[in-house]
């Protein structure tokens, strides 16, 4: 039975998730700029606040006060809602990712997840597949040939890599015998799935880079060919929403990857959790998920700093002729091994 207390708990958790994604987005931009600067032997933003820690706030203030332009020939309605459609999936996608087991405050126990659904991975697929609309519509409604090309490219790219992404989910699902992310995380309490599923892990990693349009797959916004791609005509807060969606999706795929392959919130050094006072740092909890997400984001930024963009036809060939067959093969081999070994 649904009680008012449960509804309040859901509302508060949802607000926390949305806030975490927005604040996370702000600081991932700073993280990226700092890491890129270090890789290029620069200092990076260091004026606003200590170590540049108030830089995201300064950026936000700047973007809010910028003038917003709408092209005269644009389709006004769709031009307006496209950034909103782009941001929504990124805000809701992490709803099924558990942050931890549960905490007890006073006499009440709170689960550290919004929902533990038996179709959680399908939910992830559904939200990912919806998230392409915003970009496509933004490109079309701008009535600009470069923006349209960017939108079309990203549609083709996301459809192609969604297959590999979906197939890479199947490995952990079969190993855990469940589509719930909480069950998948618990099934990794002895060995992380990255060691059982190296091919699946690589597939997920490459496909997720393509899915969030990051280098070396940042084809939709290839500056040299397409000015800025699908958001060429956007300015001010509308542009900020696209920016937010891109970085929020980076956090989301890092959380999904960490939960599916790297043990999620489980601690790799759980045997140390009996140490007094500081033992909780070595136990399971959200801080381990945060650490894994930070490491994952670092690798994504590292790749952006060091790899050239791959050519568009190569990108499609990689998706259809290499990643898709490997994904199918991985599913078949995993299934046969599970049947032979007996789970």
């Amino acid at each position: 039975m649904i009680t008012a207390a449960m509804v309040w708990e859901w509302v508060i958790k949802s607000v926390i998730i949305c806030l975490a994604m927005t604040i996370g987005f702000a600081y991932v931009t700073l993280y990226e700029r700092k890491v890129l600067a270090r890789i290029q032997v620069r200092v990076g933003p260091n004026r606003a606040g200590p170590w540049g820690s108030l830089q995201p706030l300064a950026d936000a203030v700047k973007l809010i006060f910028k003038e917003e332009l709408t092209p005269a020939t644009a389709d006004k309605k769709i031009f307006f809602i496209a950034p909103i459609i782009t941001v929504l999936p990124m805000l809701v996608i992490t709803a099924v990712i558990p942050w931890g087991e549960s905490v007890t405050l006073g006499s009440k126990t709170f689960n550290l997840y919004l929902t533990d659904s038996n179709i959680a991975t399908l939910y992830l697929m559904a939200v990912t597949s919806i998230s392409v609309y915003g970009i496509t519509l933004a490109g079309w409604s701008s009535n600009n040939k470069y923006a349209l090309m960017g939108g079309l490219r990203s549609t083709a790219q996301m459809i192609s890599y969604e297959l590999a992404l979906g197939l890479s989910f199947v490995g952990p699902i079969m190993l855990a015998g469940s589509m719930s992310i909480l069950d998948i995380v618990h099934a990794q309490s002895k060995i992380w799935f990255v060691f059982f599923q190296p091919a699946g892990f690589l597939l997920f990693f490459v496909a997720s880079l393509a899915e969030v349009n990051r280098a070396p797959f940042d084809m939709p916004e290839a500056e040299q060919e397409l000015t800025a791609g699908y958001h060429a005509e956007y300015s001010g807060m509308k542009f900020a929403l696209f920016f937010m969606a891109e970085y929020g999706k980076m956090i989301a795929v890092s959380m999904i990857g960490a939960s599916l392959f790297l043990g999620g919130f489980l601690s790799p050094v759980g045997f140390l959790s009996n140490i007094p006072v500081i033992g909780f740092l070595f136990g399971n909890g959200p801080h381990w998920l945060l650490l894994k997400v930070a490491a994952w984001l670092f690798v994504m930024i590292w790749i952006r700093a060091t790899w050239p963009r791959i050519r568009y036809d190569r990108l499609m060939a990689l998706g259809w002729k290499i990643m898709f067959p490997i994904g199918l093969l991985n599913v078949v081999i995993t299934a046969i091994v599970i049947v032979l070994v007996g789970g």
């Binding site: 399908l122 597949s129 919806i130 609309y133 496509t136 079309w140 079309l152 549609t155 459809i159 969604e162």
Partner: peptide
């Protein structure tokens, strides 16, 4: 029936209609 619901979103809204939009725009 959440399984059917999400399958519907993934397949129809997420793949087929995206391709429709793609072809219309192209």
């Amino acid at each position: 029936a959440p399984f059917i619901a999400l399958a519907q979103v993934t397949v129809y809204a997420g793949s087929i209609m995206v391709l429709f939009l793609f072809v219309i725009m192209l």
